[in-house]
Computed example of a mutant assay.
Amino acid sequence: MFTPMFKRYLLLFLVILATACNNNPKEADNKDYIYKVVGVKDGDTMVLLSPDNIQTTVRLAEVDCPEKSQAFGQAAKQFTSDLCFGKQVKLIANTQDRYGRTVGQVELSDGTNVNYALVKNGYAWQYRAYSKSEQLQSLEEQARQGHLGLWQDNNPTPPWEFRKEGKAQRATNKDAKPKKAKRHYKKRKSKYHDTTSF
């Protein structure tokens, strides 16, 4: 019924089609990467362990938690830890920051977005320099109105301002620090003289 030449072309076509389907970049991009949360450094930074035992430090995208030394900094860290430490999570990575950390969204197995949960419960600001999400903006506004978390303070300092103030303070302290005068040492003559002559 089919000629041998036709069968060869059909087989070749099927092989090419199967290869193209397996190498579809859209499918690869949508693949779920499941990790275990093995460390929480602060409210918006955690350490994930891949199934092949590779650790990845992740900075949560679009949000900024108070620094650990700021009011509610430790509370934000505790919230993140309670929410996801030791659990399986999905990482939706966006990019890498200048410190080499992966920046992305982290989701729990029940679909809870950790980034958004921090803002919703008043433990983070929407990081507007890096986020235009209307949903995050709305969640922050609701947390503000409900006086949740850090919004219990009348006028909390955003962490990016806190970091800027800290950097300026360190620079001022460095400039104000008196420089030590250099000491000049005199060479001492040895009390032992070589009197041997050749």
Rank of each mutant, 00 (worst) to 15 (best):
F2K: 13
P4E: 01
P4A: 02
M5R: 15
Y9G: 09
Y9W: 14
L10Q: 10
L11W: 13
L12T: 08
F13T: 12
A18H: 07
N24T: 02
N24P: 01
E27N: 10
A28M: 10
K31L: 14
D32N: 14
Y33F: 10
I34H: 11
Y35L: 13
V37A: 13
V38H: 07
V38I: 15
G39C: 04
V40A: 11
K41Y: 10
K41R: 09
T45K: 00
T45H: 04
V47D: 12
S50C: 05
P51D: 09
D52G: 07
N53C: 00
I54V: 14
T56I: 10
V58N: 00
V58I: 03
V63G: 06
V63A: 05
C65D: 02
F72H: 11
A76H: 03
K77S: 15
Q78W: 03
Q78A: 11
L83S: 07
G86Y: 08
K90V: 13
K90H: 12
K90P: 01
L91T: 02
N94L: 08
T95N: 03
Q96E: 08
R98W: 07
Y99A: 06
G100W: 05
R101T: 06
G104Q: 00
Q105R: 14
V106Q: 07
E107I: 04
E107N: 11
L108R: 09
S109T: 12
T112F: 08
N113E: 09
Y116D: 14
G122W: 00
G122A: 00
Y123L: 04
A124Y: 02
A124T: 03
R128P: 03
A129K: 15
A129R: 14
A129T: 13
Y130H: 12
S133K: 05
E134C: 00
Q137V: 05
L139K: 08
E140P: 05
Q145T: 13
H147K: 12
H147Q: 04
H147W: 01
L150V: 02
W151L: 03
W151H: 02
N154A: 15
T157H: 03
T157Y: 02
F162H: 07
R163W: 00
R163M: 05
E165A: 15
E165I: 03
G166K: 07
G166Q: 14
K167T: 09
K167C: 00
K167Q: 11
R170Q: 15
T172Y: 12
K174R: 14
A181H: 11
H184N: 13
H184P: 01
H184M: 09
K187A: 06
R188Q: 14
R188K: 14
K189A: 14
Y192Q: 04
Y192K: 08
D194W: 00
T195V: 12
S197K: 11
S197A: 10
F198L: 11
F198W: 08
